[in-house]
């Protein structure tokens, strides 16, 4: 039997709640319900966000490709986050702007609200409003929204190199960043 497993809808939703509980637990305990820590990287005062984010990416990516190589997980049945180059480049930049203004992203706003922050609830309402604005404008921006599709493109496939070769760059990038951030924090 290879993963991912197949469940009924009810079991799937129960698993969603359980996995979500762990998601929320690690976000809050990592300090990611706190907008000062969430925005610290952009002011070079607190590097919690890149440390948590790149550690999580490294752990999950290493596990994912290891399980796939060991034939314990069928990668062709894992839904790969699709790429639409230009919309995601612009979307990412707009997202970064909104992130610094509000001090949250969608998941961390929920974690912030769960730790008693009223401003996080206001941001959650804003995210709903922003989704509504998108739905209203959708007929006018549909062309751009659907432009530059690359389906489930991954860096190893696009670059035509082994996923472990890409991972070496990811390890080096994260390791280098962690080293510089720790050194900078000690100095200040």
């Amino acid at each position: 039997m290879t993963a991912p497993l197949v469940f009924s809808q009810g079991t799937g939703l129960l698993l969603a709640v359980i996995l979500g509980i762990f998601f929320g637990l690690f976000l809050e305990r990592g300090g990611l319900g706190n907008p000062h820590k969430l925005t610290g990287v952009f002011y070079l005062t607190d590097f919690t966000v890149p440390k948590v984010m790149f550690t999580a990416i490294i752990v999950a990516a290493t596990g994912l490709y290891l399980l796939s190589d060991l034939k314990l997980l069928d990668m062709s049945r894992v839904w790969i986050v699709p790429t639409f180059f230009w919309p995601q480049l612009l979307g990412g930049a707009l997202f970064g702007i909104g992130f610094v203004f509000s001090g949250y992203c969608p998941g961390t706003a929920v974690a912030g609200f769960a730790s008693g922050r009223i401003d996080a609830l206001v941001t959650m309402a804003g995210i709903g409003a922003g989704s509504f604005v998108f739905a209203i404008l959708y007929p006018y921006i549909e062309g751009f929204y659907l432009s530059s599709p690359m389906d489930g493109a991954t860096l190893p496939k696009v670059l035509g190199i082994s996923h472990w070769f890409v991972m070496v760059f990811v390890y080096a990038l994260a390791g280098g960043m962690f080293y510089l951030m720790e050194r900078y924090e000690r100095r200040n």
Binding site: G91, G92, A93, L94, F95, I97, G98, F99, V100, F101, S102, G103, Y104, C105, P106, A109, V122, T123, M124, A125, G126, I127, G128, A129, G130, S131, F132, V133, F134
Partner: peptide
């Protein structure tokens, strides 16, 4: 900020 995040997402 939330509006921007909602739209950008």
């Amino acid at each position: 900020g939330g509006i921007l995040i909602g739209f950008a997402s």
